[in-house]
Amino acid sequence: MNALLLAAENTVSGNIGAIGYGLAALGPGIGLGIIFGQGVQAIARQPEMTNVIRQNMLLGFAVTEALALIGFVVPFVHS
């Protein structure tokens, strides 16, 4: 068991920025799921409002994805 841990310590290498991005992607992932899920539901309930709904859906998508994109860029900036 101890030897296994030591072996893992010696071989696992990488950038901690990858883990950071994984964490940063959690929130926007949930947010995007909510936005598009509710958006599709709204379109299904009122198909005649499709254009307005899609417009607002994409605007909300743009704001939510900002967090994931910042998480993507920060490791490059700090490396």
């Binding site: 994109l69 993507f72 860029v73």
Partner: peptide, 17 residues
């Protein structure tokens, strides 16, 4: 913040990323 600063940032980085 979201309109003046984040908009151009996300607009370009989304395409790039």
């Amino acid at each position: 913040l979201s309109t003046i600063i984040l908009r151009p940032f996300t607009h370009s980085v989304r395409l790039f990323a």
